[in-house]
Protein backbone atom coordinates (compact mmCIF):
# COMPACT_ATOMS: atom_id res chain seq x y z
CA UNK A 1 0.00 0.00 0.00
CA UNK A 2 1.60 3.27 -1.06
CA UNK A 3 2.28 5.58 1.83
CA UNK A 4 0.89 8.51 -0.10
CA UNK A 5 -2.82 8.24 -0.64
CA UNK A 6 -2.78 11.07 -3.17
CA UNK A 7 0.12 11.94 -5.41
CA UNK A 8 0.00 14.91 -7.72
CA UNK A 9 2.79 15.12 -10.24
CA UNK A 10 3.56 18.09 -12.49
CA UNK A 11 -0.03 19.24 -12.66
CA UNK A 12 -0.88 21.84 -15.27
CA UNK A 13 -4.35 23.30 -15.63
CA UNK A 14 -5.71 26.46 -17.18
CA UNK A 15 -9.22 27.83 -17.53
CA UNK A 16 -10.32 30.50 -19.98
CA UNK A 17 -6.75 31.34 -20.95
CA UNK A 18 -5.77 31.87 -17.32
CA UNK A 19 -3.07 29.53 -16.14
CA UNK A 20 -4.08 28.15 -12.76
CA UNK A 21 -1.50 25.47 -12.16
CA UNK A 22 1.89 25.49 -13.75
CA UNK A 23 3.64 22.38 -12.58
CA UNK A 24 2.44 21.49 -9.10
CA UNK A 25 3.73 18.52 -7.11
CA UNK A 26 1.92 17.46 -3.96
CA UNK A 27 2.05 14.29 -1.91
CA UNK A 28 -0.64 13.58 0.66
CA UNK A 29 0.39 11.08 3.31
CA UNK A 30 -2.00 8.42 4.42
CA UNK A 31 -3.70 9.07 7.72
CA UNK A 32 -2.39 12.59 8.08
CA UNK A 33 -3.97 16.03 7.81
CA UNK A 34 -2.46 17.91 4.88
CA UNK A 35 -3.30 21.57 4.43
CA UNK A 36 -3.16 23.43 1.16
CA UNK A 37 -3.12 27.17 1.61
CA UNK A 38 -2.67 30.19 -0.56
CA UNK A 39 -4.08 33.58 -1.45
CA UNK A 40 -7.51 33.93 -3.05
CA UNK A 41 -7.64 32.90 -6.65
CA UNK A 42 -4.69 30.56 -6.36
CA UNK A 43 -6.86 27.69 -7.46
CA UNK A 44 -7.14 25.79 -4.19
CA UNK A 45 -10.76 24.77 -4.76
CA UNK A 46 -9.89 23.79 -8.32
CA UNK A 47 -7.25 21.46 -6.90
CA UNK A 48 -9.84 19.52 -4.92
CA UNK A 49 -12.05 19.21 -7.95
CA UNK A 50 -9.12 17.93 -9.94
CA UNK A 51 -8.44 15.30 -7.29
CA UNK A 52 -12.09 14.28 -7.36
CA UNK A 53 -12.02 14.14 -11.17
CA UNK A 54 -14.75 16.74 -11.54
CA UNK A 55 -12.20 18.53 -13.72
CA UNK A 56 -9.51 17.13 -15.99
CA UNK A 57 -5.95 18.53 -16.00
CA UNK A 58 -4.23 19.70 -19.14
CA UNK A 59 -1.19 17.61 -18.28
CA UNK A 60 0.35 15.86 -15.34
CA UNK A 61 -1.18 13.08 -13.35
CA UNK A 62 -3.08 12.61 -10.14
CA UNK A 63 -2.82 9.24 -8.47
CA UNK A 64 -5.33 8.31 -5.82
CA UNK A 65 -4.55 5.10 -4.02
CA UNK A 66 -2.15 4.14 -6.74
CA UNK A 67 -4.48 4.57 -9.72
CA UNK A 68 -4.70 7.51 -12.09
CA UNK A 69 -8.21 8.73 -11.47
CA UNK A 70 -8.53 10.52 -14.79
CA UNK A 71 -8.00 7.30 -16.66
CA UNK A 72 -10.64 5.30 -14.84
CA UNK A 73 -13.86 4.28 -16.55
CA UNK A 74 -17.04 5.94 -15.40
CA UNK A 75 -18.08 3.08 -13.13
CA UNK A 76 -14.58 2.64 -11.70
CA UNK A 77 -14.51 6.37 -11.02
CA UNK A 78 -17.81 6.20 -9.18
CA UNK A 79 -16.48 3.29 -7.12
CA UNK A 80 -13.38 5.31 -6.26
CA UNK A 81 -15.51 8.31 -5.30
CA UNK A 82 -17.40 6.29 -2.72
CA UNK A 83 -14.20 6.21 -0.73
CA UNK A 84 -13.73 9.94 -1.04
CA UNK A 85 -15.63 12.69 0.62
CA UNK A 86 -15.60 16.29 -0.51
CA UNK A 87 -17.14 18.86 1.78
CA UNK A 88 -18.13 21.83 -0.34
CA UNK A 89 -17.76 25.34 0.90
CA UNK A 90 -21.49 25.95 0.86
CA UNK A 91 -22.38 22.54 2.20
CA UNK A 92 -24.44 21.83 -0.92
CA UNK A 93 -27.25 20.11 0.96
CA UNK A 94 -30.17 18.93 -1.16
CA UNK A 95 -32.78 21.57 -0.53
CA UNK A 96 -35.76 19.34 -1.09
CA UNK A 97 -34.71 16.74 1.49
CA UNK A 98 -34.71 16.99 5.26
CA UNK A 99 -31.50 16.84 7.29
CA UNK A 100 -32.06 13.16 7.98
CA UNK A 101 -32.75 12.32 4.34
CA UNK A 102 -29.73 14.32 3.24
CA UNK A 103 -27.41 12.31 5.45
CA UNK A 104 -29.18 9.07 4.53
CA UNK A 105 -28.91 9.77 0.80
CA UNK A 106 -25.52 8.11 0.11
CA UNK A 107 -26.56 5.13 2.21
CA UNK A 108 -29.82 4.70 0.37
CA UNK A 109 -28.11 4.95 -2.99
CA UNK A 110 -25.05 2.83 -2.42
CA UNK A 111 -26.09 0.22 0.14
CA UNK A 112 -28.95 -2.17 0.64
CA UNK A 113 -29.33 -1.56 4.34
CA UNK A 114 -32.80 -1.75 5.74
CA UNK A 115 -34.35 1.37 7.16
CA UNK A 116 -33.74 0.47 10.80
CA UNK A 117 -29.99 0.07 10.37
CA UNK A 118 -29.88 3.12 8.15
CA UNK A 119 -31.58 5.15 10.83
CA UNK A 120 -29.03 4.10 13.41
CA UNK A 121 -26.08 5.04 11.21
CA UNK A 122 -27.56 8.41 10.29
CA UNK A 123 -28.29 9.26 13.89
CA UNK A 124 -24.77 8.25 14.90
CA UNK A 125 -23.22 10.52 12.29
CA UNK A 126 -25.50 13.38 13.26
CA UNK A 127 -24.54 12.82 16.89
CA UNK A 128 -20.86 13.07 15.94
CA UNK A 129 -21.44 16.55 14.53
CA UNK A 130 -23.79 17.45 17.36
CA UNK A 131 -26.96 17.82 15.29
CA UNK A 132 -28.95 14.71 16.11
CA UNK A 133 -31.79 16.88 17.39
CA UNK A 134 -32.06 18.68 14.06
CA UNK A 135 -32.76 15.54 12.07
CA UNK A 136 -36.24 16.55 10.95
CA UNK A 137 -35.42 20.13 9.94
CA UNK A 138 -35.15 21.26 6.33
CA UNK A 139 -31.91 22.84 5.04
CA UNK A 140 -33.59 26.21 4.67
CA UNK A 141 -34.18 26.23 8.43
CA UNK A 142 -30.50 25.80 9.31
CA UNK A 143 -27.86 28.43 9.90
CA UNK A 144 -24.79 28.39 7.69
CA UNK A 145 -22.65 26.69 10.27
CA UNK A 146 -25.25 24.05 11.02
CA UNK A 147 -25.71 23.36 7.30
CA UNK A 148 -22.01 22.79 6.97
CA UNK A 149 -22.00 20.36 9.88
CA UNK A 150 -24.91 18.41 8.35
CA UNK A 151 -22.98 18.32 5.08
CA UNK A 152 -20.02 17.00 7.03
CA UNK A 153 -22.18 14.24 8.49
CA UNK A 154 -23.37 13.38 4.99
CA UNK A 155 -19.80 13.26 3.67
CA UNK A 156 -18.60 10.88 6.37
CA UNK A 157 -21.63 8.61 6.35
CA UNK A 158 -19.91 6.02 4.15
CA UNK A 159 -16.67 6.25 6.17
CA UNK A 160 -14.46 7.47 3.34
CA UNK A 161 -10.71 6.93 3.26
CA UNK A 162 -10.04 10.43 1.98
CA UNK A 163 -11.76 13.53 3.30
CA UNK A 164 -11.36 16.82 1.53
CA UNK A 165 -12.54 20.07 3.07
CA UNK A 166 -13.03 23.10 0.85
CA UNK A 167 -12.54 26.26 2.90
CA UNK A 168 -14.29 24.86 5.97
CA UNK A 169 -13.51 27.82 8.21
CA UNK A 170 -14.38 30.68 5.89
CA UNK A 171 -17.07 32.95 7.21
CA UNK A 172 -17.63 31.08 10.45
CA UNK A 173 -18.08 32.70 13.81
CA UNK A 174 -15.43 31.78 16.42
CA UNK A 175 -17.60 29.21 18.15
CA UNK A 176 -18.49 27.28 15.00
CA UNK A 177 -14.92 27.58 13.90
CA UNK A 178 -13.73 25.95 17.11
CA UNK A 179 -16.33 23.21 16.73
CA UNK A 180 -15.28 22.47 13.17
CA UNK A 181 -11.59 22.41 13.99
CA UNK A 182 -12.19 19.90 16.76
CA UNK A 183 -14.46 17.78 14.56
CA UNK A 184 -11.94 17.59 11.75
CA UNK A 185 -9.16 16.66 14.13
CA UNK A 186 -11.24 14.06 15.90
CA UNK A 187 -12.45 12.45 12.69
CA UNK A 188 -8.89 12.16 11.52
CA UNK A 189 -7.76 10.60 14.78
CA UNK A 190 -10.63 8.19 15.31
CA UNK A 191 -11.08 6.91 11.78
CA UNK A 192 -7.50 7.33 10.50
CA UNK A 193 -8.99 9.25 7.60
CA UNK A 194 -6.52 10.95 5.30
CA UNK A 195 -7.52 14.59 5.31
CA UNK A 196 -6.86 17.45 2.94
CA UNK A 197 -7.88 20.91 4.08
CA UNK A 198 -7.94 23.78 1.62
CA UNK A 199 -8.11 27.07 3.41
CA UNK A 200 -6.64 30.49 3.92
CA UNK A 201 -7.27 30.62 7.64
CA UNK A 202 -3.66 30.29 8.72
CA UNK A 203 -4.11 29.99 12.48
CA UNK A 204 -6.91 27.44 12.53
CA UNK A 205 -5.42 25.31 9.81
CA UNK A 206 -1.90 25.32 11.20
CA UNK A 207 -3.23 24.27 14.60
CA UNK A 208 -4.34 20.89 13.31
CA UNK A 209 -2.34 20.26 10.13
CA UNK A 210 0.48 17.76 10.03
CA UNK A 211 1.91 19.12 6.78
CA UNK A 212 1.27 22.32 4.84
CA UNK A 213 1.64 23.27 1.19
CA UNK A 214 1.59 26.91 0.13
CA UNK A 215 0.42 27.61 -3.39
CA UNK A 216 0.63 30.94 -5.18
CA UNK A 217 0.85 31.95 -8.84
CA UNK A 218 0.30 28.39 -9.99
CA UNK A 219 3.21 26.77 -8.16
CA UNK A 220 4.04 25.41 -4.76
CA UNK A 221 6.05 28.18 -3.10
CA UNK A 222 6.61 26.43 0.19
CA UNK A 223 5.91 23.23 2.05
CA UNK A 224 6.66 21.73 5.36
CA UNK A 225 5.33 21.26 8.85
CA UNK A 226 3.43 24.24 10.26
CA UNK A 227 6.27 25.11 12.68
CA UNK A 228 8.83 25.17 9.91
CA UNK A 229 6.77 27.45 7.73
CA UNK A 230 6.11 29.88 10.50
CA UNK A 231 9.86 30.22 10.99
CA UNK A 232 10.60 30.55 7.29
CA UNK A 233 12.53 33.51 6.00
CA UNK A 234 11.13 33.42 2.46
CA UNK A 235 9.41 36.81 1.95
CA UNK A 236 6.40 35.38 0.07
CA UNK A 237 5.78 32.78 2.76
CA UNK A 238 6.19 35.34 5.49
CA UNK A 239 3.73 37.70 3.81
CA UNK A 240 1.08 35.01 3.70
CA UNK A 241 1.62 33.46 7.11
CA UNK A 242 1.71 36.79 8.92
CA UNK A 243 -0.85 38.53 6.83
CA UNK A 244 1.30 41.42 5.74
CA UNK A 245 -0.59 43.85 3.56
CA UNK A 246 2.16 44.50 1.10
CA UNK A 247 5.15 42.48 0.08
CA UNK A 248 5.93 40.11 -2.74
CA UNK A 249 2.20 39.99 -3.53
CA UNK A 250 1.53 43.68 -4.15
CA UNK A 251 -1.28 45.61 -2.53
CA UNK A 252 -1.91 47.78 -5.57
CA UNK A 253 -3.47 46.40 -8.71
CA UNK A 254 -1.13 47.34 -11.60
CA UNK A 255 -1.94 50.94 -12.66
CA UNK A 256 -0.43 54.13 -14.01
CA UNK A 257 1.60 56.34 -11.70
CA UNK A 258 -0.71 57.97 -9.13
CA UNK A 259 0.26 61.62 -9.71
CA UNK A 260 -0.04 61.22 -13.42
CA UNK A 261 -3.58 59.81 -13.24
CA UNK A 262 -4.82 62.49 -10.84
CA UNK A 263 -3.42 65.32 -12.92
CA UNK A 264 -5.05 63.97 -16.04
CA UNK A 265 -8.19 66.05 -15.99
Amino acid sequence: MPSNLVEITDLRFSHDKRVIFNGVNIAVQRGKITAIMGPSGSGKTTLLRLIGALLTPDSGEILVNGSNIHQLSRSALYQARRKMGLLFQSGALFTHLSVFDNVAFPLREHTRLNEAMLRDIVLMKLEAVGLRGAASLMPSELSGGMARRVALARTIVLDPELMMYDEPFTGQDPISMGVLVRLIKRLNELLQTTTIIVSHDVNETCSIADYVYLIAAGRVIGEGEPQALQQSTDPLIRQFIYGEADGVVPFHYPARPYAEELLDA
Partner: peptide, 16 residues
Protein backbone atom coordinates in the same frame (compact mmCIF):
# COMPACT_ATOMS: atom_id res chain seq x y z
CA UNK B 1 -29.00 22.94 -8.08
CA UNK B 2 -26.01 23.51 -10.32
CA UNK B 3 -25.26 26.92 -8.83
CA UNK B 4 -25.44 25.67 -5.24
CA UNK B 5 -23.18 22.76 -6.18
CA UNK B 6 -25.79 20.14 -5.34
CA UNK B 7 -25.17 18.46 -8.70
CA UNK B 8 -21.40 18.43 -8.18
CA UNK B 9 -21.73 17.03 -4.67
CA UNK B 10 -24.02 14.30 -5.93
CA UNK B 11 -21.44 13.53 -8.59
CA UNK B 12 -18.74 13.36 -5.90
CA UNK B 13 -20.83 10.88 -3.93
CA UNK B 14 -20.59 8.56 -6.88
CA UNK B 15 -24.20 9.04 -7.95
CA UNK B 16 -24.88 10.14 -11.50
Amino acid sequence: MKATEQLASMDMMGID
